[in-house]
Design a protein around this nucleic acid. Structure first.
Lengths: 348, 348
DNA sequence: TTGTAGGCGTTATCAC
DNA sequence: GTGATAACGCCTACAA
């Protein structure tokens, strides 16, 4: 027979635990925290833990944050969650942070510096212990300032000129080399590059890698065959390809700065009745989801998104643990996924 | 000539503002809070605001939360961010919450009830003021319990049996009717349905809508032509279609529970050399990104994801403002996007 | 209209 | 090893 159950509306606090265990709240606090548990008598600790268990005590992270000025939380600054590149990175980050007892706050910036500043401010006011930043531009005053202020940061996919920050990126050199080798092996000699925005390190490094790769294959690196896209987007990719075609330049293959830019090419192919890969081959970069079901399935350079996220989280945790450690950067190896958007040039 | 700048390392607090303005912290607090500002002399208020501005004072949300047991934060419970359905919904939510002064905490559950419970617990301990839940199953003990405990919630895309909660969903009836009408108009009479999981309200309502629509078109609603997929995924869709084909049933078109299930059909078409749409038409549901570039471009029922998110956020804000208000639910109108995965049956 | 005082739940620093 | 006390930054009765 069960007696009347008193149900309290507010969550149990440390005092409740202490009272139930017959100890002072300070002792209960020490017993509950693995760090300080050695300071307290083993029996007492057991008693406290049992009491906590019995009433379902959960420490209040807000009170803890207020006291410790820490939060077990890190901020994730990304341009736009709807870009399919980011969700797997986010998952990789979370899957490393969670077991380590950390949580991630995700914010979107829409590539708007003002919005970025507000969002970062809001993260800071929530006492995030560090930032994982995917929005870095080569010139990035905000990040420079944050770094000066001692904010712990890790960059993903991008880097900032002159800023020694830990970063995790794909090996762009190797990736672009794979793409160019593949096209060269198919017999292409006139290859164009639709470069990503040159205010991002990734845009620059892939463009540089493209020049080097062309040179390595003893192919003409015609400046007229490289066009910069204003954004990492389909529309920007389409616009860039249109301008290249309109310029009258002759080429039989395109190395796109990323998959979205490559997909923008598909739109232009449809507009102008260009057959891919018969008349024009395209290689993307990133291996975003569902490329295998595209028309045609897109050949692309695959990078390990999930691992990029995981590595970034690990680097940040390292930085939090050992603030003085010299910044490491991680380069992850890409691989080429050959599909049907590339083939031999028509007049090979 | 600029004098020496004193840089304080810790963020300015209310005391700093008060001191600078020459008032008591309580007065500063009242002046800073629009709610209580009328209580304080207009001149004093101005002085305080100016002081706050000058030292870049930002209230500490953690201290505020501890005091008020509120957080201006809502939790977003989704199964998996890498499902392309969710990012636009998340954006819609954020774009409504942000102007209202709220932030969103996103958590993934991976459809794992244990993980869901932990994540929700962590949200609650952070004093989130409400939850937007995209993981609802028809039977969902956790949500029932949270509702009993008075947690404010809004459901997106899904509903829970017997639980009167505000929800935002696409009008599944209308959507499926559009799909079936389209196929019927093309001349299809034997139409199959690859239903979503029947433990989700969406899976059930689309399956029911399918039966109704077939009936409305005086087409045979053969139970053998409906197969349930275990998950809303490509692999589950592929498996379901394989089993249907292997059963020897005859049909010329498929209404898929969602786009992923439809894309799973593409895999089977490739495996078995089935031409789409010549031998088999397929309609998806959701209009996820990049369907226009698929092979073949997928005909689908478009639902306004971004608006779904926005509506959900509005419903939650309403609930927070007026807790006693009767739960409303919002049904958003879908539209049909006809592409190349549907055509007349071969032997029409 | 403004100031005073107390406390939200936790932890760090003292004593004992 | 444990208890007392104060403080993190803010808000809000209550008093003046």
């Amino acid at each position: 027979m069960t007696g009347p159950r008193i149900v309290r509306m507010t969550a149990p606090t440390l005092r409740d635990v202490a009272q139930l265990a017959g100890v002072h709240p300070a002792t209960a606090s020490r017993a509950l925290n693995p760090q300080t548990r050695p300071l307290v008598n083993a029996d007492t600790a057991r008693k406290v833990l049992r009491a906590a268990e019995s009433i379902g005590y959960q420490p209040n992270p807000i009170a803890r944050s207020l006291k410790t000025a820490r939060s077990s939380t890190v901020g994730l600054v990304i341009p736009d969650l709807t870009n399919p590149l980011f969700p797997p990175i986010v998952r990789g980050i979370e899957d490393v942070l969670t077991p380590a007892g950390y949580n991630a706050w995700i914010v979107n910036t829409d590539n708007d510096p003002d919005r970025e500043e507000t969002q970062v401010e809001s993260l800071r006011s929530r006492q995030v212990e560090g930032l994982i930043v995917a929005t870095a531009k080569r010139e990035h005053p905000l990040l420079v300032r944050l770094h000066r202020q001692g904010i712990k940061m890790v960059l993903v996919n991008r880097r900032v000129d002159g800023l020694e920050l830990p970063s995790v990126t794909a090996d762009d050199d190797a990736g672009v080399a794979l793409a160019v080798s593949h096209l060269a092996a198919l017999g292409h000699t006139r290859i164009a590059h639709l470069a990503g925005p040159q205010d991002t390190s990734t845009g620059v490094s892939r463009a540089r890698a493209f020049r080097h790769a062309m040179h390595d294959h003893r192919l003409a690196d015609d400046p007229a065959l490289t066009v910069e896209c204003g954004y990492w987007s389909e529309t920007a990719g389409a616009a860039a390809l249109r301008s290249l075609l309109d310029s009258g330049a002759s080429f039989t293959a395109v190395v796109a700065g990323n998959d979205l830019i490559a997909l923008g090419c598909y739109d232009v192919f449809a507009e102008r009745g260009i057959a891919c890969p018969e008349e024009m081959s395209v290689v993307g970069f990133n291996e975003m989801p569902f490329l295998d079901k595209m028309r045609p399935p897109l050949t692309t350079v695959a990078i390990p998104h999930y691992e990029i996220g995981g590595e970034a989280a690990r680097l940040l945790l390292d930085t939090l643990d050992e603030p003085e450690r010299h910044p490491r950067s991680v380069l992850l190896a890409p691989s080429l996924v050959v599909r049907a958007s590339t083939g031999p040039p028509r007049s090979a």
